[in-house]
């Protein structure tokens, strides 16, 4: 995660409440949220900073609270292509869950961003030791991947439609 991130003060209870209130955690068991909160911190990032960098270790799950982030692919000598923008309420990335645990894209803050950062090693440890939590979390990530895939397919269909016209 970005070097620009500044940790914002927050006591564990407030963090747990913020985490429980994030759409990613909707309907998640209270005990599971508490376990996740143990390795959660809140951060602020300035506009323009990189939240994730392609090729770097995917060591955290970021849950956006406020602000806009763009997922980008940069080709040398060209303007970066924005694949998608993510906004308050969105989770960012799932590469932290699957080997080789490296980010595939850059994520750049378009505005000042406030986010929760959940330590990936802690989450993977919880998944290994608590199968009920593991199922709940991987189902959530599965749903996220399916939604993004559906949006990407819709995007592809629309772009092909335009290109044909």
């Amino acid at each position: 995660m970005s070097h620009h991130a500044s940790l914002t003060a927050g006591d564990p209870d407030t963090l747990r409440v913020t985490l429980a209130g994030h759409p990613f955690c909707a309907d998640l068991d209270g005990g599971h949220v508490r376990a996740m909160a143990e390795a959660t911190s809140e951060h602020e990032l300035p506009a323009g900073s990189l939240l994730l960098q392609r090729g770097h270790a995917a060591d955290a799950l970021a849950l956006l609270l406020d602000g806009d982030v763009s997922l980008e692919v940069t080709e040398p000598g060209d303007d970066p292509i924005v694949l998608e923008t993510l906004h308050g309420g969105d989770p960012v990335g799932w590469s932290w869950l699957f080997p080789p645990y490296r980010w595939l894209f850059d994520a750049r803050c378009l505005t000042p961003v406030r986010l929760l950062q959940l330590d990936a090693a802690h989450l993977r440890g919880l998944i290994d030791t608590d199968p009920v939590f593991g199922l709940a979390l991987t189902q959530r990530i599965g749903l996220l991947v399916v939604q993004r895939l559906q949006f990407t397919r819709a995007q592809l269909v629309e772009m092909t439609h335009h290109a044909r016209a």
């Binding site: 292509i81 924005v82 694949l83 906004h87 378009l110 949006f151 995007q155």
Partner: peptide
């Protein structure tokens, strides 16, 4: 918009993505 390069500054993604939020 469905696609953009950096500098656009607005949202990128299909319009249907906005519907749930």
């Amino acid at each position: 918009v469905d696609s953009a390069v950096r500098g656009w500054g607005g949202r990128v993604g299909v319009v249907t993505k906005l519907i749930p939020r």
